[in-house]
Amino acid sequence: MAVSKRSFIIEHLRKAQMIELLAQGRRLDGRALLDYRPIDIKCNVIQKANGSAQVSLGNTQVIAGVKIEVGAPFPDTPDKGVLVVNAEILPLASPYAEPGPPDEDAIELSRVVDRGVRESGMIDLSKLVLIPGQKVRAVFVDVSVLNVDGNLIDATSYAVVSALLTTKMPEVEVTASGEIREKDGMIPLPASKIPVSVTFARIGEAMVVDPNSEEEAVMDARITLTTVDEGHLCAGQKGLAGGLTYEQIMFAAETAKIKGQEIREIIKRAVSSVG
């Protein structure tokens, strides 16, 4: 990744050390293979946004804000509202991050998180239509990565989901002349399911969840699987220049379901604490 340093000699040495430790079921930071770092979610941190959440996953820190506007639907989905998820790795987030247009890592991050939210059916976009084919609500979720320490996909995903679940938007009415007028009341987004992504790193033969930067620097392959409430899978993405065996993928699918349920409860608690 552009945001983590890959030094050849240290990478090779540290990898050997890490693999030795992983064979004993341990990791350099003391976690077990299937332990997440502490997950902290704070909602409603930005008052000017319709919804927001700041998530820390160990030292990885991201902030997501939702802005809702009225816009035109996409031509191929005239009967649906618009949902756009975009993530940026800010230059202040890592000594290796640079300003400029998003690179392929940032684009992949945005698209994998977007896919998880979209394909889960979390937001009922058909309920965001104001005038079919002409005016719909557009939900923009922008995520800024503030500190990089691995597993940006999960941190970003939890921030986006938490922000959407706490989003309030003004009630609107369509006047006889086709104008959209805001009313006083605020309503939540039509959100039901809670998609949860779980990211694995394969280092040697070991599969670990929630890799930190150090582990990301030496991992061979990465796979992210997103599940919805009933445990079904709704999105997935394999990454990096290594492969995975059939067994490793099935293991990831089962583990994503179990871990996803644990993390779903953490998101629910964070969301309900702000009402």
């Binding site: 394909e119 079904h232 899978l233 709704c234 999105a235 997935g236 492969g243 995975l244 993928i249």
Partner: peptide, 13 residues
């Protein structure tokens, strides 16, 4: 060895 896996949409296990 599986070298690409992506998923869009809901599937049971």
């Amino acid at each position: 060895i599986i070298t690409l896996l992506q998923l869009d949409g809901i599937l049971t296990h």
